[in-house]
Amino acid sequence: MQGLNDFMDVLALHGEYSACLDAGEFERWPDLFLENCDYRIQSRENYDARLPLSIMWLEGKGMLKDRVYSVRETLYHDPYYQRHIVSAPRIVAVNEDEIQAETNYLVIRTKRDTFSELFNVGRYLDSMRRTPDGLKFKSRACVFDSEWIRNSIIYPI
């Protein structure tokens, strides 16, 4: 039964993650992570070659909050909406404190004056830790499949 509970907890965290980003509620995003966390967006090519170069690499909840501040206050960009489509997670490992999972994702971007477009596709590689407030991300690697990205990535994936 614990396996089903773990699966449901991972699904709930993924649902909350997608909902806050798709609604543009970026201030809630850091609360889904532990204080000492790691978030990165990296090409599949670099990930597979074990090269550290990432297009976004944030270490610690403070850096996630800085990113939210940047999105809201300092970055000039053409606003857009995101819509996450996320597969069922594949739980890779479970121990007393942590769950490791891999999940496919697809992000569609819509600018106010254009048609929706495929923005980013890849997989999440997650390490999640159990806390009194439920699962939180210890690390999330967004490994995108293409070697190219459209324009720049402003919002978290």
Rank of each mutant, 00 (worst) to 15 (best):
L53Q: 04
E96G: 10
H14G: 01
D31T: 14
W148N: 08
L75A: 14
E98Y: 12
A101W: 13
D78K: 09
R72M: 09
M128P: 01
H77I: 08
E45R: 10
N104W: 06
D66P: 06
T74V: 07
L118H: 09
N95R: 08
G122A: 13
A101Y: 13
I153W: 01
I153N: 01
N104A: 14
E102C: 00
T110V: 13
V107S: 02
L13T: 04
L13Q: 07
L11P: 05
R109D: 07
V86S: 02
D145K: 04
S54D: 08
K138L: 15
I154W: 10
D78H: 07
F119A: 03
I154Q: 04
A23W: 11
P156T: 08
R72E: 10
A19F: 09
A19K: 13
T74Q: 02
T131R: 09
R129T: 14
H84K: 15
Y105K: 07
S127N: 11
A23G: 06
P156W: 02
T74E: 07
F119C: 07
L125E: 06
L135V: 02
V68W: 02
V71D: 12
R112G: 15
M128L: 04
R28N: 08
F119W: 09
Y76H: 01
I55A: 03
T114D: 04
W148L: 10
L64T: 01
Q2M: 03
N151H: 06
V94K: 03
N151R: 03
R90F: 06
Y69N: 14
T103N: 06
E102N: 00
E102M: 02
R28V: 12
I41A: 08
G134K: 12
F26Q: 00
E59W: 03
N5A: 14
S146Y: 01
L64I: 00
E102A: 00
Y105C: 13
M56S: 14
L118F: 10
N120P: 03
Y17H: 01
R72V: 05
R28E: 05
I85A: 09
R140M: 07
V143E: 06
D145R: 04
W29N: 01
Y76I: 00
A88E: 14
F119E: 04
W29Y: 09
D66S: 09
K61F: 10
G134N: 11
A88R: 11
N120W: 03
G122Y: 11
D133L: 07
D97W: 11
E25H: 15
M63Q: 11
P156G: 07
N95H: 12
D78Y: 10
L106K: 01
S87L: 04
S127E: 08
E16M: 06
V143F: 05
H14Y: 00
D31H: 11
G122H: 10
F33A: 00
E117D: 10
S43Y: 01
G60Q: 06
V68K: 01
